[in-house]
Design a protein around this nucleic acid. Structure first.
Length: 494
RNA sequence: CGCGGGGUGGAGCAGCCCGGUCAGCUCGUGUGGCUCAUAACCACAAGGUCGUAGGUUCAAAUCCUACCCCCGCAACCA
């Protein structure tokens, strides 16, 4: 049985609305999925939501509804964004799904040899009835800002998962490439982080401190903490352990995560898999953060950008274009409205949109729309495919734009409009012109092919215009100019 | 002496591993060309002590040493 492809994305916590980072996960997953499907592969593409935990419970209590009712109302925000982005996912997992809950309990049972009871010690606020991290305690000088009482060192009983037992095997998998982390420097960072070994993690909380979560099998006093619950989604969604089809897809070919959660996905998650006797994911695609004008996105600063607004203003393909090309796939990137609009106007409008327009219009004008023999344009696509394989999607788009640029150059060099003037005088002119224009059309079809993973709607449109042998130019141009955040160069001077 | 990344024309970057053919690309600016096209496209030009100071070498953005500056991370943060 040939293994089918599987890509998974991190599941966001649904106590907020989707942000640009979530959108980036979906976009990268979708680009990969479309690319693989285009190459004839069967791909399963998971997305989902993480719905347990105290923050959800507190929010729900505030609203006077059950936690489940609350997440029922918020997870759709994420689902809506995915749909809006034309994310071609095949599976949507919610950690509150019955099957997930049951599977996680099975996983707990199976991992029992590596689970032991211990005591967790940390800073506790009596008012919150919850633990806080060292960082939070430090930031507040040891006093809870909400209750004006000092945090106390408190210990509580809970279960620990023995990730330490798997340190060596995980290190080996990273070193020998069984589990790749891309980019490479993230792998080095992580290896450095665990050079002294992985620490065991606390995987449950007493019921009094954590109410909303999956019960620990065989211990009614304990509720599972986020780790086993959330990370397990990548296999429970495939049907693990009861639906055998999961075996056709696991191990994941790619898992898309943000740099902030690498340590969990490169540490705890592989440890879980090894404990279950399963293979490790082949690649972890670690993307960076999107900054806004060089600054970190922060709710308190209020510089949060809603992906929905971008899509509503400029269209989905413009959104997909910017975030796949101008936010480096494997590193941090920067968003500003000005950069976005410049990319939209100059690259999508002038470079690509105008190119399509000029070629289509020449064929209409000189040949009544008949394209003729589409000479197979064979541009060297090695660099494009190498970039796709290396999960450097931004470089792949760069390659496409090199093609756009050279086609524009080609047209200026051969001057079809000059050739057209020779028709009627020079017998060679007509076939020569036909040859030139069919070459252009062929090149555009190829560009359309390469854009399928990135700009699905635009790719379809290019194919519609050029593929039938007769130009079918719809009303209106592709990517009409927009001057919302940048000055309109054609505006009359004040 | 915590770990990591980085400092290249106005902006953003590539090149550095494997020293010379490297000072390159995109945007921006200027000039010109063209007219098929979304006042688009194409060509050319101006602009850089390649963070600083030493060193190695016939030769350094590229290797070595020291220093300065910027940015992440520093474990329970999805």
């Amino acid at each position: 049985m040939e293994k089918k492809l599987y890509i998974a994305t991190a599941i966001p916590y649904v106590n907020g609305t989707p942000h640009i980072g979530n959108a980036l996960d979906y976009l990268l997953g979708d680009i990969w999925t479309r690319y693989q499907k285009q190459n004839g592969h069967d791909v399963r593409f998971q997305v989902g939501t993480d719905e347990h935990g105290n923050k959800i419970a507190a929010k729900a209590a505030e609203l006077g509804i059950t936690p489940k009712a609350y997440t029922d109302s918020t997870y759709v925000n994420f689902e809506n964004l995915m749909k809006k982005m034309m994310t071609s996912y095949t599976d949507f997992v919610r950690t509150t799904d019955d099957h997930h809950v049951a599977s996680v309990q099975y996983i707990w049972e199976t991992l029992k040899p590596y689970i032991y009871k211990g005591s967790y010690q940390g800073w506790y606020c009596v008012g919150h009835e919850a633990f806080f991290t060292d960082k939070e305690v430090q930031a507040t000088n040891g006093i809870c800002p909400d209750h004006q009482i000092p945090y106390q060192q408190v210990s509580e009983d809970n279960y620990f998962f023995k990730t330490s037992a798997f340190t060596d095997r995980i290190k080996l998998a990273l070193t020998d490439g069984t589990m790749q982390i891309l980019p490479e420097f993230r792998k080095l960072e992580f290896l450095d982080l665990i050079k002294d070994g992985l620490d065991d993690v606390s995987v449950s909380r007493p019921k009094k401190n954590l109410t909303w979560g999956i019960p620990v099998p065989g211990d009614p006093e304990q509720i599972m903490y986020v780790w086993l619950d959330a990370l397990a989604n990548y296999i429970t969604v495939l049907g693990y352990p009861d639906r055998p089809e999961w075996k056709e897809y696991w191990p994941a070919d790619v898992q898309v995560i943000g740099k902030d959660i690498l340590r969990f996905h490169a540490g705890i998650w592989p440890a879980m898999l090894l404990g279950l006797g399963l293979e490790l994911p082949k690649k972890l695609l670690v993307h960076g953060f999107v900054n806004i004008g060089g600054a970190k996105i922060s709710k308190t600063v209020g510089n949060v950008i809603d992906p929905n607004v971008i899509i509503d203003t400029y269209g989905l393909d413009a959104f997909r274009y910017f975030f796949s090309r101008h936010i480096p796939t494997l590193d941090d990137g920067d968003f500003t409205w000005e950069k976005f609009e410049n990319a939209y106007n100059n690259e999508l409008g002038n470079d690509l949109g105008n190119l399509i327009q000029r070629v289509a219009s020449m064929i209409l004008k000189y040949q009544a729309g008949v394209i003729g023999e589409t000479g197979q344009a064979e541009h060297d696509m090695t660099a494009y495919h190498a970039a796709m394989d290396g999960l450097e999607f931004n470089k792949a788009v760069d390659e496409v734009w090199n093609m756009v640029r050279s086609l524009n150059q080609y047209i200026d060099n051969v001057k079809p409009w000059e050739v057209a003037k020779g028709i009627g005088k020079d017998p060679e002119a007509e076939p020569h012109l036909a040859e030139i224009l069919s070459h252009c059309a062929g090149a555009l079809v190829q560009i359309g092919d390469l854009l399928i993973p990135f700009l699905p709607a635009t790719a379809t449109r290019i194919h519609e215009i050029f593929e039938s042998g007769v130009i079918k130019l719809p009303e209106g141009v592709l990517f009409p100019k927009l001057y919302i955040h940048t000055p309109d160069p054609h505006a009359p001077k004040a």
